[in-house]
Design a protein around this nucleic acid. Structure first.
Lengths: 183, 183
DNA sequence: CTTTTATATATCAAACTGATAGTATGCATC
DNA sequence: GATGCATACTATCAGTTTGATATATAAAAG
């Protein structure tokens, strides 16, 4: 299950260009499966070379040609193959958590800044769900609703955990008391 | 903040070999910052080349020599530099969620198998916290306790969300009803 | 009038992933 | 008694991904 498979999946919704797909990654997929041009374009090139997709070059005025990709029958089979893995991964790579492991090497100001920024980031993410948006909330496939709900739920859990435990990372009560008692 | 920085951080706890660090990644760091030999050994080689670490080759009986790395003063400065980024990332890459977006292209059996496996995986992960382990729970730096608690909290949140919403992904009541009414 | 944003393509160095390889001991399974 | 597997240690490699950059034009923002 790499970027190629996700691109094939996106194309089951209708033809699209690499640029369209990038926007789709940015707005939704990218929150749990990031991809940039550097992986999308090579993926599409490989898929085309292997007959999984076909493309039509659509000329435009004043803009580069659009390459509009369509999934083929072979591509659909490949997609089903990709969806047949019974143990898909779910990986986190967090500079944030790695950094917090070394909080004792940082100043209190540094730690607080990092945490405040992270909370802001999470709050901004949660705002995406408040809007009357979900352009097609009702028309959204169940899978997409499950995943969106997942993201919202995890984000608000995170926020709660960080808020309730952040003092663990800074001059914790315990340590301050010890110092006071020691003197 | 790449593997090099995390290696430097690990070395502030005392000298270690690449193999030791791999075990450390496997047992703890890897849950939120994965790294394999393919990134650890090149990272250590680069760090040594740039004077961030020094190493001593310790011969052993019947086993390959251990290369025991120690952080240098220059390495400590580099680490502080790495810890000074006020906006560390926290990224998820989830084949699981991507797959669930395409649940409507899968059979109900496939979806159920994937979800059952994922729940088992989460339960196994949660078992790591039940043990009287945390070899040094009390001696653990606060940062590590914060991060461990974070992992435990997120995992149990995930479990709850999946259990409560999984029926959204399979032949949902709603759709079954619609079919029945339509006939 | 200049900078930014949007539309569209594409590439590249550096980093990372997952697998493989080599070498030696011990331990269990057949 | 042999075969395979786990542990201990190093290391590399092909394929992917990341993040930045390049190219080109037009419209909107400042």
């Amino acid at each position: 299950m790499d970027v190629k498979t996700v691109c094939l999946g996106m194309l089951t919704d209708g033809p699209a260009s690499g640029y369209d797909m990038k926007k789709c990654f940015e707005s939704s997929f990218g929150h749990f499966f990031p991809a940039g041009y550097g992986s999308i374009y090579p993926a599409l090139a490989t898929l085309a070379r292997n007959g999984m997709v076909e493309f039509e070059e659509v000329p435009q005025e004043g803009k580069p040609d659009r390459k509009v990709y369509t999934i083929t029958e072979k591509g659909r089979k490949e997609l089903m193959q990709g969806l047949s893995n019974p143990q898909p991964t779910h990986r986190v790579r967090s500079e944030f958590l790695a950094m917090m492991c070394f909080a004792h090497l940082m100043t209190e100001e540094q730690v607080n800044l990092v945490i405040d920024n992270k909370l802001l980031e999470i709050e901004n993410f949660l705002k995406l769900f408040e809007k009357p948006l979900c352009n097609q909330c009702s028309s959204m496939p169940n899978g997409a609703r499950f995943v969106a709900g997942f993201g919202q739920f995890v984000a608000s859990s995170l926020k709660g955990y960080i808020e309730e435990n952040r003092e663990m990372l800074t001059s914790s009560g315990a340590e301050k008391v010890k110092v006071a008692v020691g003197q």
